[in-house]
């Protein structure tokens, strides 16, 4: 589904290479995890895939079901089925959470040539999915992420994902700042979306999220490259021994 080949990316402002040849294949129906020390390029990878400004791709390709992601505007990537759950979701004062969701859902439907969702249907779906994430009516009415706790923001990201039904979901440190209960809620939300037509790329520092969202493949990223890939055991190894051995071995 997601194919990344030899991806090189430079941070424009600092003229600094961040990604130095990333290769990654994520097949439909699978969950991949990316772990790695701070500054290894994990978040950069997620931003570049989503189309954020400030990064220059100097080499390599990234495709989603064969379509060239890097040639698309961020909204086109979204309509093509890519979703990024942000590590730090931004606040949008005055814009109701429900309004935001509905605008997003209908923008994507329009881009795909589908009918807009009727108000009644939308309400029904959003209430159902919000309920599963323990997001109450009040939180749907409040302005997007304004005054939300860390946990509420992350649950809200997962709600957006559940409403938009993307095929390629990238979760950027969704577990950061979550207590145990919130982590379970978020993980349950993610697991409920797992199916044969959908893939996940989970970026995390910690093994504990992967106890809840069981990955098929675990990658270790360091200095802008994926240096080691393996099964779920690899995450346990990191948890026990840290990155030092793996990095030493890779270099």
């Amino acid at each position: 589904m997601l194919e990344i080949q030899n991806l090189h990316v430079r941070l424009e402002a600092e003229d600094k290479p961040i990604l130095k040849g990333v290769d990654l294949n994520v097949a439909a129906g699978t969950v991949h995890a990316i772990m790695g020390p701070n500054g290894s390029g994990k978040s950069t990878l997620s931003y570049v895939l989503a189309g954020r400004d400030g990064y220059e791709v100097t080499d390599g390709t990234a495709t989603l079901d064969g379509a060239d992601l890097l040639a698309m505007e961020p909204e086109e990537r979204a309509a093509a089925g890519l979703f990024l759950a942000f590590q730090y979701p931004v606040e949008i004062p005055g814009v109701g959470n429900m309004t935001f969701l509905r605008t997003a859902v209908n923008a994507q439907r329009k881009a795909r040539g589908q009918e807009e969702m009727s108000a009644g249907e939308f309400l029904k779906v959003v209430r159902d999915r919000a309920g599963k994430l323990r997001i109450d009516a009040d939180m749907l009415k409040r302005a997007v992420n304004v005054g939300f706790s860390g946990g509420e923001k992350k649950r809200n990201e997962i709600l957006q994902m559940a409403m938009l039904e993307p095929k390629m979901c990238i979760l950027d440190e969704t577990d950061s700042g979550l207590d145990v209960d919130a982590m379970r809620l978020v993980s349950d939300g993610v697991n409920a979306l797992r199916d044969a037509g959908r893939a996940f790329l989970v970026i995390t520092h910690y093994q504990r999220l992967l106890d809840h969202i069981r990955p098929d493949v675990v990658h270790i990223m360091a200095d802008g490259r994926i240096v080691k890939s393996g099964g779920p055991d690899l995450a346990l190894e990191v948890e026990r021994n840290g990155y030092a051995d793996i990095l030493a071995e890779a270099l």
Binding site: L84, I92, T99
Partner: peptide
């Protein structure tokens, strides 16, 4: 960028943010 990553184009995103600003 947040709005666009959810599928809104740039004009729509600006309109949404500004409409939020003037909501009161």
């Amino acid at each position: 960028f947040y709005c666009r990553s959810r599928g809104m184009d740039e004009e729509e995103a600006v309109a949404l943010v500004v409409n939020g600003f003037v909501k009161d």
